[in-house]
């Protein structure tokens, strides 16, 4: 599996780490507990193309938003997470 980093080009996935689904967004600090529980613990875990956050730890150290198919490991796109669409 190789990830097309916008800075570094096509790089082996072992240079990256992922923290999972990019659809998660941290609720405000005063959000109700149920909403925080949802953010911390529940996942869609879809079979198919999904948006994930990957960190190029052994490269440019950018956070990327990667569209990847969990059934085939095929990667459709990778863009910078910051400034990219939420």
């Amino acid at each position: 599996m190789r990830i097309p980093c916008p800075f570094c080009g096509l790089r082996d996935s072992s240079e990256f780490v992922t923290i999972g689904e990019a659809s998660m967004s941290r609720p405000p600090a005063d959000a109700p507990e149920a909403q925080i529980f949802d953010y911390v613990y529940l996942r869609d875990n879809p079979a198919g193309v999904n948006q994930e956050l990957w960190y190029h730890a052994q490269g440019c150290r950018s956070w990327l938003k990667v569209a990847r198919d969990t059934r085939t490991h095929e990667i459709e796109s990778a863009v910078l997470a910051r400034g990219g669409a939420q």
């Binding site: 996935s13 992922t18 875990n45 999904n50 994930e52 059934r71 085939t72 490991h73």
Partner: peptide, 13 residues
């Protein structure tokens, strides 16, 4: 392997 998958196969690293 460290990433989400339903593929029943992994990678070389």
């Amino acid at each position: 392997d460290g990433y989400k998958s339903y593929a029943q196969r992994g990678n070389l690293p």
